[in-house]
Write a protein that binds this DNA or RNA. Sequence first.
RNA 1: GGGCCCAUGAUCUAGUGGCUAUGAUGUCACCCUUACAAGGUGAACGUCCCCGGUUCGAGUCCGGGUGGGCCCACCA
Length: 810
Amino acid sequence: MIRKTYINYILLNLIKMLDKNYNAADVEKKWQDYWEKENIYKFDPNSKKKIYSVDVPPPYASAGHLHVGHALHYTQFEIIARYKRMKGFNVYFAPCFDDNGLPTEKYVEEKLGVNKNTVSRSEFRKLCIEANEEVERIYRDKVFKRLGHSYDWNLLYTTIGNEAQKVAQTSFVKLVKQGDCYRAEEPTIWCTYHQTALAQAEVEDLKRKTKLNYIDFDLENGEKINVATTRPEFLAACVGIFVHPDDVRYEDLVGKNAVVPIFNQKVPIMTDEKVDKDFGTGIVMICTFGDNTDIEWWKKHNLPLKIIIDKRGMLNELALEYKGLTLNDAREKIIEKLTKEGKLKNREELEQTVGSCWRCNTPVEYIVTKQWFIKALNYKNELIEQGRKINWYPEFFRVRYEDWTKNLGWDWCISRQRFFGVPIPAWYCNKCDNIVVAKENELPLDPLEIDRGKCTKCKNGELKADEDVFDTWMTSSMTPQITARWLEDPLNYKKKFPSSLRPQAQDIIRTWAFYTILKSYLHFKEIPWRDISLGTFVLDAKGRGMHKSKGNVVWADILLEKYDVDTFRHWVGKAKWGSDIPFKEEELVNGKKFLTKLWNASKFVLMHLENYDYSKPNKIEDIDKYYLLKLNDIIKTATESYETYDTSEANKAIESYFWHDFCDNYLEIVKDRLYNPNVRGGESRKSAQYTLYKILSNLLKLIAPVVPHITEEIYHVDFAKNEENKSIHTAEWPKEEKIDGKLIIEKGDLFVKIVESVRKIKTDNKKSLKDEIVLTLDNKSLDLLKDLIDDLKAVTKAKEIKKGEFNTEF
RNA sequence: GGGCCCAUGAUCUAGUGGCUAUGAUGUCACCCUUACAAGGUGAACGUCCCCGGUUCGAGUCCGGGUGGGCCCACCA
């Protein structure tokens, strides 16, 4: 044992070769540095190759942990970028960070102890940029570089950067000019905690328990009706009562007036089909505004407006004695009073789902304010049309996009009453209705820092700057334009737009995908990308979503302390795009085993290529041709699968061929020829060497996008210098090669079948596979395999092959 | 309430109307085979969620259930 290892050691050192064991840590570091130093992934703007551009999702850079789902998804499309590069495209793969949102704002506020009262918006922005740079540098090294990602870092953009701000503001100015962006006083969805308007897409469900209150209202004639409501705090804002038109119980009420308790306003009783007769008492009060239906009915029935809450969710003077109370406090007080007056007849527990702010979970309210909107409702059909021009992978996600588009109820509200973000470049006259929007050539700017002086329209008022900022999607919806440098480099921009691919998560189809399609349509009547591919969603081992609150989140950076990057990437390569996968750490074992196998098989092959002159032999043995033909099939399958973003299918096919056809069978078959140079005049050994070289070099390339480090290491032992190539990642993707020979597949299949039978017999008889046998084959087989007899003898360890009925003797 | 996706050995998974249902992990047996024991060769483990239909033939198509996941709407 010791002796054998020692001899191996000597041999390995004599013939420049792969180390005995694969040392992942060293290899990974070595090549990551090399790629960076040699600019392997640099985008060449002057290249004549076709461009493949990726509209990368800008990640929030955070100093904290990296979610395994995130690492998976980013690696998933990184694999595609590598594939396309090898396929001959000039790949435009620009990294980016989203550092313009609330997380950055919070981080700076907490870390530096500043807030919007102590610094100006532009100072605050400067602080954010500084804080981000540090975090992003760490993120870049600890995450992207560590995962072996092949971005061209010269192309980096950040959503807080000038170009991104300019694009967002330019988009706004252009849309205002063309009439697709307007300012209006409308009921908007409102978060009382953040004191900002929200888009429909920012509202999430919140399940909670509440009380349904049955309250008596007096009629003018002295009769009483009973109304069920969960929001008695809105009594002051009550502007009407509804019953169902077919509800015989209440036929007589319609047209009469009711008197609202406590506040005593008279409100009309009307009918609407949408009333549910079976809910509560079947009598509904409508207030401005308790919920969505209130807004609908308010508009439909032309009811008056009574706003009783302010931006903080506090009641105002219209709420009389309840002024200054929060909605919750007012509810308690009002219930108290109603009880005292004997008007509260009953209270029931009720489970309800209310909309809430996606950031803070505060239930949303509806407030009438001046907001900017981008038209979407007008273009529903066009947007669905645009969606159909895009290739969706998997296809069924287009349905989700169409459903969302069809069911849109609001235009897109783009203004937010936040402090930090992209400023809205507009000014308003404080005397008349004049709105002044910045000119495109002034952008980017912060209107708060520019004095526009007197109103040009009424000559009387002053122009006051808009203090709001854009919804973050206002920037994100322009990522194809930002990444391709729409404004910075308009000439080259056209080569990169529409993007080839938008990789993204399925849960933001209604936001990111939708808004991006909308913007590209409004600005260019164009689709933003040719393909959209929805990544894999990682669940915990039991198939539940990973949430910090559940404590079941797996962090990729911790995983990478235990496993090699290529091991992790191997797992990524097998994940199916668009579907959910449960995360099981045991499954990483697979990747580890694969790397070891690849290393050892390569070591074996390279050892036997030591004195190979790389020329084509005069004659290629039939069994060699058989495995070359099978390689062709794999190249075809892998290529076709990659073209539809089915990395999982591609890699399964490649790996199965590598492991079972190549290692388990082919390597065993050729050992005899390799170890005995004089067998069959030496030419058969060369045939084996030629085949080994071909297969291994192609396999390495096929698997390189998934496991870039180990393949680069092996490639550089021999292949790189022959191909005069700096990196396997700039090598050409394998192509099928023409191979002639009659009946090769039939011969090979029979050959393998015989080998497998012999192995089974040996195992059944508890014999070692190297035990010698006497093999008997029928005439037909012998005839078909007449040129392969030597290989068959060698691999089955048959001393002799006889004619007769199939049999194996020891 | 609506839409979409999913259900296959213990676990994860392939299967796009057609011979005996794929592969991996785990389990068991045997084999140290001049790359690899982190390996090799085999074996066991399946009512393909249930019911009905179409078909010569259904894991696959259709209808209806059941159970899970995601998205949306929502009762005032």
